[in-house]
């Protein structure tokens, strides 16, 4: 059984959702320091599991070979390093190179994890809500495309079926015929779509599109809890940036491994941990509150 948990971070204003993912992915690609990498990896996985349940674990299991592959292949391309593990075809396979490979692999998988959560949380309408404010026409086009795509898919299969039933297509035909047939379906779909579009354009103008200033309606609200969380997140991001700028996350893998460890590393990585933990903590807290409420009944 696949357990899909409700994501409570999603119920915050989309601006916060989007801001969080931009920060998590952007900073995640930036920091190569082991402490930061561990934070990003662990928390990205945790969050994905709180959203998707078992599916999140499966996703991780699928990632393991990728991690190994990336980690093992990278040293092949870089022979720099002081600790040589073995030599192949006269090239050195170094420990530093391997460690760097591991770091890159973890970074890459964390990014994929964050994207996986992004795809679950940031539904198309949230994305459009965010960009609707400063790109109103583009975001309108996006909503229109999202309406059309399922329509076109349905129509494409109808045209395919219709052609099959007059002996013009089929599964058991040759490749050449299949291609020609697919092309005819695509061409028929294009006509149908473009002709129908004239009515859509009429319907838009009939409902006042282009008659003056346009506003953007959204069903999302920006509450005080959103404001509080946003301030916290901005504060943490600023703090992390400062620590990074002061060299708290500096690390050199090759040719000699040099990992910085100072006060900025500690402050920076703690703040980084707090930032990335926000959605998971919200989800876990909410779960606990509900358990308590339910147990009182």
């Amino acid at each position: 059984m696949q357990v899909k948990n409700k994501d409570n971070f999603s119920s915050y204003n989309p601006i916060l959702n989007f801001f969080f993912f931009v920060c998590a992915i952007g900073l995640g690609m930036f920091f190569m320091h082991p402490a930061f990498l561990v934070c990003s990896f662990v928390l990205s996985l945790l969050y994905y599991v709180t959203i998707e349940g078992l599916k999140g674990f499966k996703f991780f299991v699928l990632m393991v070979p990728l991690i190994l592959l990336l980690a093992l292949i990278n040293p092949l391309f870089n022979t720099a390093g002081t600790h040589i593990l073995f030599i192949y075809f006269g090239r050195a396979y170094t420990l530093e190179g391997l460690l760097y490979g591991v770091a890159i692999a973890f970074m890459f998988v964390s990014i994929l994890n964050w994207f996986a959560s992004y795809n679950a949380v940031m539904t198309s309408d949230k994305f459009i809500y965010i960009f609707g404010k400063f790109l109103p026409s583009i975001s309108l086009v996006l909503t229109m495309i999202l309406r059309l795509v399922p329509n076109f898919q349905r129509k494409a299969s109808q045209i395919g079926t219709a052609r099959m039933c007059i002996g013009k297509a089929g599964e058991n035909t040759e490749k050449k015929e299949k291609i020609e047939n697919g092309m005819t379906v695509l061409s028929g779909l294009a006509t149908w779509a473009l002709e129908g579009g004239i009515i859509t354009a009429d319907s838009m103008r009939s409902r006042g599109y282009g008659s003056g200033k346009r506003t953007n309606f959204a069903i999302y609200r920006f509450d005080s809890r959103d404001l509080v969380l946003l301030i916290v997140m901005i504060g943490l991001v600023a703090g992390i940036c400062v620590c990074g700028f002061m060299g708290g996350a500096a690390v050199i893998y090759t040719p000699v491994l040099e990992i910085t460890f100072n006060i900025y590393t500690i402050i920076g990585s703690v703040m980084y941990f707090c930032l990335l933990a926000i959605p998971s903590v919200i989800n876990i807290m909410e779960e606990i509150i509900w358990r308590i409420l339910r147990s009182r009944i």
Binding site: L194, A201, R205
Partner: peptide, 13 residues
Amino acid sequence: ARELVIIAIMCAL
């Protein structure tokens, strides 16, 4: 409106 519709249709296609 027509320009929006055309772009939306071509994208969706």
